[in-house]
Design a protein around this nucleic acid. Structure first.
Lengths: 243, 243, 243, 243
DNA sequence: GATGAATGAGAGTTCATTCAT
DNA sequence: TATGAATGAACTCTCATTCAT
């Protein structure tokens, strides 16, 4: 399955395609290492503090977008001083792109662990992707939201560089996330590619629905009910799409 | 059913639930009338100017979000003075909520005209919704984008009031937009509610996909190819969901 | 008399060469009008306030140089708000160059009134120049200090533009300030050019001396004593340089 | 010769008067020893490093002035750490005044070697002073520029202390630099004091002229031409001022 | 002694908002 | 009604200075 753009909308609920482009022939995605030589100051501080800063920044950018995000607020949330943010990262922009690169790295690392590319059943694979998503969430709650916001970002200051990076990545192969799926299981008359996209969009739609619901109810979600509903949808797909 | 891009803004299941909740038993959604007694100054100016201001504001908020949006920019785009914006609306926040209420009104008005709740076929109904969407777009090009941005808005200053309004609306019934659908057309074992949701998410997913694609390629889309793809998906749904 | 560079050091006491380059054949220097179309906001405010801002800015830049000068301090000294400075001038840099252009204008205007280019005696001419200087000082006490500081300015941000302006002016004729002097009055063996330079440097040296003295004593100067001393030097020059 | 203030402006080209006030009856100027008990840490490090720090600091202060000078930049230029600067000197201010005192010391030391107070011819003495200047320059290229900048410094933080020091020195005798000059060589009607001042100002004026010229042309100076011009001026003075 | 991470005051600048006209 | 000058809080970023190592 090729259509990576189809994955484009899987933001937040499954995976943003931004983090998928660098798929390798061996089924392993590699991360953008652009920042390895930079940000040495930040990367050498103690882990707990580093994660605090990363999470604070991811959250702020995810919620407010690049322009409205306040480095001041990030510092406060991370319990560090205003000046230290600029000691670690030279500028707001650099911080933003550090987060981008770091996110690619994290997602791809988790990808290798969570997704078994030898698994051929699309529903099992989907569960693996969901697990990956959860793994990222448990470490960086706002990371996927950040990734989504990156994709929607329109601030002049970062737009150009962002497109450059995304397009720079476009030269690799795509779509390994759902490659190797056994297409023969699908009914005649059902395009497997279309079916997979529909499943992905459904997963995403459900995710957004839960998210919106938790906004309204105040944040607590009944995970059992969610899994039940998820299963009901998957069950329907199996019934209708599979032979 | 043609115009998929028009559906682009159908975030989260067609029309954002934020704007639909007030559906009434008589199949007519009514708008929030909270602002009727306010904004009298603004509402009594000549129409052309009023629309200019509304469109400028919708656009600015849709693109930049609440915080980053600039009242100055809105004034400039609408060709009025900075001070006049605050003469019409007391504050940026009030302008924001005026737009929200106005959007509800407009959408519901168009709803009555475009959607025939006696139509029972879900695919036909879908076409009506698309037409509604197009009608709104032709008058207020940024209105649906604004609505989408409202749903994603997290700025502290408006978040609370926004949730209040949404929750205030939540007491009504939902889903009339797709009420009265002939459920008997669906296969046994296929939940009509689930099926409709899946179709909606697919429409949305396709819209986002095209939108993302146009961002990367620079804006030009092959409408024929889009229509073809859209039809292929609908065809698949008819085959698999209908008896 | 050609050597305009010799005038370079006539800062403060006589005239900075920066303000002299645009000398015209008719003996009238014209000012740089670059800013006429800009700064309209600032130029249309009431005079008293405008002068207050100009004087505050001239003083701050003269004393601290471009980098160390504080727009905050300027606003405070001029009794206006911080934001207003940026309402009038878009940036610190623009303010700086507005002052430069304004200074050229003022100095050249005063020049036309104070200096009679038909006067051939160097000592009389010198007195005219001194009068010009005094006229500028009475309106803008820090203007000549500002001009001096401009000439010494090394801040990267303004250096390039400054040189451009200075060199842009260099295409005109120079030195009309001391053109038309009757050279035949000088003794054989005394180079008139050298003699005039010496006189200028003496005027400047005396000026600096008084300035330094007033710094130490607290500001009060005995003008009579100063004039006496000035005269004694001029007398000496007449005796030794003239036939 | 009394008028030490007349020497005030001999910045850079000859000698700043700030460093001359402490002249003693025995023809030897002594340095301000205020700092002897301080800065012991700095004074006990290896010479090469010490000179590196001094030169870096002199340069930075000379170029940017007190406020705009960056301790960070000084540390970088001297290849030491930021913290070490504050280990040696408690503060930026202390560093600034250490440099001031050190400069006095250096200049006075060189003075004793270069200037022969038994020499009675003012033009020969002038040459000695020029040699002194060169000697200082060869060891501390920015020292004289620093001294000049000190004299022009107006930063609130150091202004008071600076004036104190200068006035503290003013109680001693002045002007030994040009004491013992044979006044009988001057023509009747030519005040030797005035004549000497004129010569000093001319030397200074020439210096500034060359400096300004090198700024405009990019730094290269024709030393032979300069010396020729210098000589022509001195020749003129001999002709006109001496019997 | 020597380092550089960390702090917070203050820089230039923007912007919603007020107000005199 | 309509304007835009004026304000001040908050923004990103810099820098002298402190301090744990």
């Amino acid at each position: 399955m090729k259509n990576i753009i189809a994955l484009t909308t899987m933001v937040n609920s499954v995976l943003c395609p931004l983090c998928l482009p660098a798929a390798q022939g061996d089924g392993v995605l590699f991360a953008n290492r652009r920042h390895i030589h930079l940000f040495t100051k930040f990367l050498s501080i103690e882990e707990e503090k580093r994660e605090r800063v990363i999470n604070a920044a991811l959250k702020e950018f995810a919620i407010k977008g690049y322009t409205a995000a306040s480095t001041n607020e990030i510092a406060k949330e991370a319990s560090i001083s205003k000046g230290l943010v600029f000691h670690y990262f030279k500028s707001k922009k650099d911080l933003y792109f550090f987060l981008y690169d770091h996110t690619l790295e994290v997602v791809n690392t988790e990808l290798r662990e969570a997704v078994d590319l030898l698994e051929t059943d699309v529903f099992v694979r989907m569960q693996q992707v969901a697990r990956l998503n959860l793994a990222v969430y448990s470490k960086y709650p706002s990371m996927m939201d950040y990734l989504k916001s990156v994709y929607l970002e329109d601030a002049e200051e970062v737009k150009t560089d962002l497109l450059e990076r995304i397009q720079g990545l476009s030269t690799g192969e795509y779509g390994h996330l759902f490659s190797g799926i056994d297409m023969t299981k699908f009914k005649d008359g059902v395009s497997p590619e279309q079916a997979i996209n529909v499943i992905l969009w459904t997963v995403e739609g459900l995710g957004e629905q839960y998210k919106g619901r938790s906004r309204l109810t105040g944040g607590v979600l009944d995970m059992d009910a969610i899994m039940d509903e998820f299963d009901r949808y998957m069950e329907m797909f199996k019934t209708t799409f599979y032979k």
